[in-house]
Simulated scan of single mutants.
Amino acid sequence: MSATLEHDHDLATRWARLREEEPRLRVRDAAQRLDVSEAELVASLPGATRLRPDWLALLEALHEAGEVMALTRNDHCVHERHGRYEQVSVSGPMGLVLGEDIDLRLFLRNWVHALHVPGGNPGSPRGSVQIFDAAGEAVHKVFATEATPEGALDRLADTLRDEAPAAIRTVPRAPRPTPRPDAEIDTAGLRDAWAGLRDTHDFFPMLRRFDVARQQALRLAGPHWARRLPSSAIERTLSAAGAGALPIMIFVGNHGCIQIHTGEVKRLVPMGEWFNVLDPSFNLHLRTTGLAEAWLVRKPTEDGVVTSIEGFDADGEVVLMVFGKRKPGQAEDMHWRELAEGIAA
């Protein structure tokens, strides 16, 4: 037996034993317990197939697969949306899915490994396509549902199968850069640039221009543009939007994908440390203990000020962002602005 096969056999054996001991343990958590990457663990599943890293072909194939469930997560929040992959495109390192239901911003430099997992496997009852970064961490997953045509993801795998896959080799993620000291930031220039924003998409280039971390920029911008809130503000925002039947936009992402829900949130279910949205086409699972702080953020645009409530973890990473429902060229919904300002009052 080759070293690779022996490793795979040993991993499969250890995982089978762990599942017997803890049958409800999720794949991501099992990988941590077994001290392997999630990509390696998923690749060890019976029938798992490596796919070619042709991301446009994959997105187009997902469009043909019909209705599915898209999942994007970070350490503290899971975002699940049912729908179709519509209006897919790739331009260099960026990809887009702009359907009414599944709405994604894709950072393809961090898409490295893709796997098809047939139905009947742990964490993949009807089959799935799972994408991982160089460290073997999942950046995006697609699951077949009851509404998915029978065999749709199997046919995708037959078309995109990598006929000569190399063994999955992972490299540790680079540590998060330490923000520069506040004293080294051109705070006056940052505030002027912030006041001169004309589009929300100009915000990230502004951060790069001043070499400032996002959370640091909020702190330095001044209370007119950003105001710190307790972490409970996220839960209160979602609850208020649900109670008022107010359509909102919820952004959850990682360094490979941002997934957006646009619409109302209705069935809100707190369960221990988790705050959940359990609607038919949209689920959100937010670990509230992972939130360290929240911010009310205002950005000027050509359409007027755009307001968001943003949650961060203890490392300064964005957990999720909530906006009012709007399209480019539209002014912000005043009901949303009143809700957000009320949360911050």
Results as ranks from 00 to 15, higher is better:
His9Asp: 15
Leu220Cys: 05
Gly263Cys: 07
Pro300Tyr: 02
Glu137Lys: 11
Leu11Met: 13
His76Ala: 05
Arg169Pro: 00
Leu108Cys: 01
Arg73Val: 06
Val90Gln: 11
Val42Leu: 04
Ser239Met: 03
Leu41Arg: 07
Val318Tyr: 00
Gly290Cys: 10
Tyr85Gly: 05
Lys266Met: 05
Thr237Ala: 11
His9Leu: 15
Gly242Pro: 11
Asn254Lys: 14
Leu246Trp: 08
His7Asn: 08
Leu98Pro: 08
Asp279Phe: 08
Val97Trp: 08
Glu184Ala: 13
Ser89Glu: 06
Ala147Thr: 03
Trp336Val: 11
Ala157Gln: 02
Asp313Leu: 14
Gly304Trp: 02
Gly196Arg: 12
Gly329Thr: 11
Ile250Pro: 05
Leu11Asp: 06
Gln216Trp: 01
Met206Lys: 00
Gly95Trp: 06
Pro23Cys: 05
Met271Tyr: 04
Ile260Ala: 10
Leu320Gln: 10
Gly311Trp: 05
Gly304Val: 13
Asn254Met: 14
Ala12Leu: 12
Ala188Tyr: 00
Pro280Asp: 04
Glu21Arg: 15
Phe210Asp: 11
Asp279Leu: 04
Ala135Ser: 15
Thr4Ser: 14
Leu229Thr: 12
Gly66Asp: 02
Ala226Gln: 04
Arg73Gln: 15
Ser2Trp: 06
Thr288Asn: 06
Arg169Gln: 11
Pro230His: 08
Glu6Trp: 08
Glu273Asp: 11
Asp10His: 13
